[in-house]
Amino acid sequence: MSNILEVRGLKVMYGKSIAIHDINISVPEGGIVTLIGSNGAGKSTTLNACLGTVPATEGKILFAGEDITHASTAERVRRGLVLAPEGRHLFPYLSVQKNLLLGATQRSDKEGIQRDMEFCFELFPILKDRLKQKAGTMSGGQQQMLAIARGIMANPKLLCLDEPSLGLAPAVIDDIGNKIREINQSKGTSILLVEQNVHLAFGAASYCYTLQVGEMVAEGSVEEIRNNDVVKKAYFGG
C-alpha cells in the first residue's frame, strides 16, 4: 500500500528555538492516522509545516509521492492536502454557504462542487438548515462541523484535522468521531487527526504517533499505543 503523505526528518524552528525535530510520519492511502500529544508537543506545528504555513527547516514532505516541501500552501491544497485548522478559522461574517464555497475556491468543476456540497449536507444536515446563517453565530459544535465540511469542499485526498474536539461537549465529540470515520469510508479520503482527546483519537484511527516536546516518542497501531508504557507515562502523566 502506498502512502499519501510521508514526512521525513522534519524539523521546524521558531527563531532560534526548535519546535519539532526528526519527525517521521506516514499516512497510508485511505487510512486514518492520529497524532497525539499534550499541549506544546508540536502537533499543530507539524500540521502547519505539512501545509506550508510555517517553513520546514529540515526534512522532506512527500505528498502522493511528490516532494512538496517547498510548494506554496495554495499548491498543496490544489493537490489535495487540506487542513481544518485548530480554532477552525471560519469566516465568521459570511454565510455557511459562502464558507463552504470558499473551501472549493480553487476548483472549477461545478458538478463536483455540487456533489461534495450534497455530501456535506448528508453528513451534517444542520448545515443545510443553516445555509444562510452567518458562520460566527453558530454553536461551537456546528462551527466545527462547518470547518470539517469546508475542508471536504476542497476535495482532499488527505484531510488533516487539528483538534476537532477542542471546546466541545462529550456527546458532540463522539458524533465528530463517527463523522470522521464516515468521511473516510464513503469518500475514501485519508485522514490525519491531531488530537489531545485520546478517546476520540483511538476511536477513529488505526495507527497512532505520539509526540512529546517536539519529539516522536512512540508509534504503532492504536492497540499497541494504548498499552505502551512510555505513552502512558508521557501522555497520561502516570
Binding site: 500552501t73 470558499l102 475556491t105 480553487q106
Partner: peptide, 8 residues
C-alpha cells in the same frame, strides 16, 4: 490564515 488554508 483561514483564507490561506483554502488555497487562496
Amino acid at each position: 490564515l483561514g483564507a490561506a488554508l483554502q488555497g487562496i
